[in-house]
Design a protein around this nucleic acid. Structure first.
Lengths: 245, 245
DNA sequence: CGGTGCTTTGAGCATACTCAACATCAGTGG
DNA sequence: CCACTGATGTTGAGTATGCTCAAAGCACCG
């Protein structure tokens, strides 16, 4: 296998057209421009697995992802984990309700962020409606993805969950200029499980079953090739529990 | 039982201090004021169970709830339903990504809305940063609740889901000036199930179990009294599967 | 009254979980 | 260079939580 043809997620955001789609690209611009004038953003880098902030930490900064992937997650009192999102370049996070973070943010891959203090951002937004507008757009877009995630967690089977997940990654990769049918999965089985509301064992079994059925193949656990995207698409929406196999 | 002491959800929003909390109250103000000047909002009323818009309809209006409760939900191709939120007075909905609604909005109770065309709202927001600011606040707040909902759907047991749900209603009622320990549940068992990612049978069984354990009591299926809020709180977060019963 | 819709309860089952063993791989030090 | 270790992933066996199917209870209403 030629490793060069496999898009590595670490490189997303390092290229010139790094954003998921046209809309996302549009989001990045206003704050960039504003920052050039007002110098409110500072650059921060994190290595893979480093925490950016913890649930319970005082909030006060908003972050924009420049490169890399950020994992957001919440924990129950007894340690169960729910990943609320994997965020890609162009997306914002750090907004909170009560001056306290309601979840933990962690760098999934090595990551570069632009960080803004909330106070400065608000001041800037008051002067420039375009900034405010694009912030609203960003949060709105995240709300809509999160609502899709609700349907996935509440009403989809394990097989459907994993298929939907893989298709979403495929879209992100394709939108970043990579090959949507051959890519690296940047998260561990545990992280996938915590995103899909499953256990690692179930995730692993579903992967194996997709492989057995010829819908995809592996080079190793983190590098897959989608062999039949149409059947994968069908699996992501249909129950099909009664027949087939 | 004295029906008069039971807060009816239909009346939420009809009172002067109708909002969930101080923050929500603050949200309502700017658009109200702006509207007085610009006359961009129009009042619409819906009876219980009436649809406001359907998944797939062209989007173009944003709604603010004046009175009543709105149910938002998404459907899979084969008809499974996930309720993404029950919205109360002061909350906004109708924002979408692609000029097309990604979910259905339905009046749960009789409901009054103020409706704004997106175009006019954007024009207004461009002129008045405060409007934009409060819109952002509203969407941000909804995103955070939706993230809590993710944890509930992905990582909580049926018992924990129902307990969390009841406590949330209790908070809303208490915040609206009602009695947080004695109230009407404004949604059917099916709607609760579709919100919690369960079946009606499981919801019903969990209710019965809470009753048997003395944590709450019924007058009828829709009217409950919470008898032991501390144990309910404990149940909403702990698994406790290994011992007790 | 007899309908109709919603809710509750019961019995059996299936999907996904738990517990456990084994495989694989990377890093480390003998 | 290879054995050791720890982290990660896969597979198996048995189980439990919540689902399905079915019937009965209950309230509201003509």
């Amino acid at each position: 296998m030629s490793a060069a043809t496999v898009l590595r997620f670490d490189s997303i955001g390092a290229r010139s057209t790094s954003c998921t789609d046209v809309r996302t690209a549009a989001l990045v611009t206003p704050l960039r421009e504003a920052e050039t004038n007002a110098d409110i953003g500072s650059i921060v880098s994190y290595r893979a697995k480093e925490a950016i902030y913890f649930e319970g930490d005082p909030a006060g900064r908003v972050f924009e992802i420049t490169a890399g992937i950020v994992k957001l997650f919440k924990l129950t009192a007894d340690g169960r984990c729910q990943v609320t999102g994997f965020l890609y370049p162009g997306q914002y996070f750090g907004f909170e309700r009560n001056d306290e973070h309601s979840q933990t943010a962690e760098a999934l891959t090595s990551t570069t962020l632009r960080s803004f203090t909330l106070a400065k951002l608000e001041r800037l937004a008051g002067r420039d409606p375009a900034v405010q507008q694009q912030l609203l757009e960003a949060v709105r877009s995240q709300l809509l993805s999160t609502q899709d995630h609700l349907l996935l967690l509440g009403r989809k089977t394990a097989q459907e969950k994993l298929s939907s997940f893989l298709l979403r990654i495929s879209e992100v990769v394709a939108g970043s200029g990579g090959d949507g049918s051959r890519f690296e999965i940047p998260m561990s089985r545990t992280e996938i499980a915590d995103y899909l509301g499953l256990t690692t064992e179930t995730v692993s079994r579903c992967f194996s079953r997709l492989k057995d059925r010829g819908l995809l193949s592996f080079t190793d656990a983190r590098h897959i090739t989608i062999r039949d995207i149409d059947r994968l698409l069908a699996l992501s929406e249909e129950d099909e529990g009664t027949f087939a196999h």
